[in-house]
Nucleic acid binder design. Structure first.
Ligand SMILES: Nc1nc2c(ncn2[C@H]2C[C@H](O)[C@@H](COP(=O)(O)OP(=O)(O)OP(=O)(O)O)O2)c(=O)[nH]1
Ligand SMILES: [Mn+2]
Ligand SMILES: [Mn+2]
Length: 385
DNA sequence: CATAGTTGCCAC
DNA sequence: AAACGTGGCAACTATG
């Protein structure tokens, strides 16, 4: 994968400057200098020196994670407010902006990640050294980093991402009438949920709203409790309970499939993907309730996450073969779970897009259509547009 | 000096 | 009583 090192260097300078300023502001607001990257030191400043309330605990003491800082900031405290900003910048700078250039191979001028075939228990690939499956995109600063992933001269990047992939697989496996009907009509359940949560018509759902609804959909399906949901949505516990109740009333076929899947897993000791990949789940027979409950959530997730992994692997094999047979110059460069990224000679844009989309959408024939959206651009962000 | 555990957080 | 799932990595701290 080619990256624009000048662009990253520019971002590094900008982030570095902001970090220095934030650091000074935090020391001033806290009335003391300390290592901002040290959780123990931060704890003593927030919860001892400044006497702020402990809102959450970890194994070793008071938590200082984002959710805690956000609440403290909302109470009008300056240090946590500045720290949220500091955390974002420091995470992006240390993990991506400053780390990625060191991975560029001097011979090829590119970053060569490792895709691990047995990295995930569900059948997903994982990526390491560096991980190119978790490149930032969700914040403006993150997006700027992703823009440094570029095509070489004369080529474009082509991206292809499955629409609502695990929801479609869930429609197929569960046969839930509302799910199946939604997809038959070309509907968008993430958008539907967003409209409900935010109380707006579907055509007024923003990308940010849909993204939040995506998390809500998956978290609800995979067993999130009302307590966590209430926190995530900033609603009361009762409202959260009611949301979950209504969700599974609307999608009763989904609830039934989840229950059946857990029961079958308990019986057999494993769950299976659509294509027969198994994951054994010994936790289901554990004496400890917490361990068993964890096993149950794993049992519901793995068939879906694993089927999505199987599906894209089938597509990858067919695309690889088709590109070779047709003597195309397009090269598969990344897989990000339900997305493929290619370097494509400009002249092949249209034909490669069509070929990739077709093979991904026909990798399996399900009860609902598989839909893939493709895009091309000079960098990874523009290629998703 | 190297290694392991913890915390926190990026993505899908 | 309650806990979405799957990963990898940086920084810090404790231990050897
Ligand atoms: N359990 C869980 N799974 C997730 C989460 N985020 C993503 N996934 C899984 C399920 C998704 O179908 C799959 C691909 O992620 P995407 O970001 O492409 O979302 P999806 O395909 O559902 O929607 P899309 O139409 O592409 O925007 O990864 C999450 O927060 N929790
Ligand atoms: Mn997708
Ligand atoms: Mn995706």
């Amino acid at each position: 994968m080619l990256i624009d090192r000048e662009r990253l260097a520019e971002i590094s300078r900008a982030f570095g400057k902001e970090l220095v300023e934030l650091e000074r502001a935090i020391y001033r607001a806290a009335g003391t200098d300390f290592n901002l990257n040290s959780t123990p030191q931060l704890r003593s400043v927030l919860f001892e020196k400044l006497q702020l309330p402990t809102l959450k605990k970890t194994k070793t003491g008071a938590s200082t994670d984002y959710e805690v800082l956000e609440q403290l900031a909302a109470m009008g405290h300056e240090v946590p407010k500045l720290l949220i900003e500091y955390r974002e910048l420091s995470k992006l700078k240390s993990t991506y902006v400053d780390a990625l250039p060191g991975y560029v191979n001097p011979t090829t001028g590119r970053i060569h990640t490792s895709f691990n075939q047995t990295g995930a228990a569900t059948g997903r690939l994982s990526s390491s050294d560096p991980n190119l499956q978790n490149i930032p995109v969700r914040t403006p600063r993150g997006e700027a980093i992703r823009r440094a992933f570029v095509a070489p001269p004369g080529a474009v990047l082509l991206t292809a991402d499955y629409s609502q992939i695990e929801l479609r697989l869930l429609a197929h496996l569960s046969g839930d009438p509302a799910f199946v009907e939604a997809f038959a009509q070309g509907g968008d359940i993430h958008r539907q949920t967003a409209a409900i949560i935010f109380g707006v018509p579907q055509d007024q759902v923003t990308p940010e709203m849909r993204a939040r609804a995506k998390t809500i959909n998956f978290a609800t399906i995979y067993g999130q409790g009302a307590f966590a949901l209430s926190r995530q949505l900033g609603i009361t516990l009762d409202e959260a309970k009611e949301f979950i109740r209504q969700y599974f009333a609307r999608f009763a076929g989904v609830r039934a499939w989840l229950d059946r899947t857990v029961a079958a897993a308990r019986e057999k000791g494993f769950v299976e993907t659509i294509f027969g990949r198994r994951r054994y789940i010994p936790e289901l027979r554990d004496r400890n309730f917490n361990v068993r409950a964890f096993g149950e959530r794993t049992a519901t997730n793995s068939p879906l996450q694993g089927s999505a992994a199987d599906l894209i692997k089938i597509a990858m094999i067919r695309i690889d073969r088709a590109l070779a047979e047709q003597h195309l110059g397009a090269r598969m460069v990344l897989q990000v779970h339900d997305e493929l990224v290619f370097e494509v000679p400009e002249a092949e844009q249209t034909s490669a897009s069509e070929l990739v989309k077709r093979h991904m959408e026909t990798a399996a024939e399900l009860r609902v259509p598989l839909v893939v959206s493709t895009g091309v651009g000079r960098n990874w962000v523009d290629a998703k547009g």
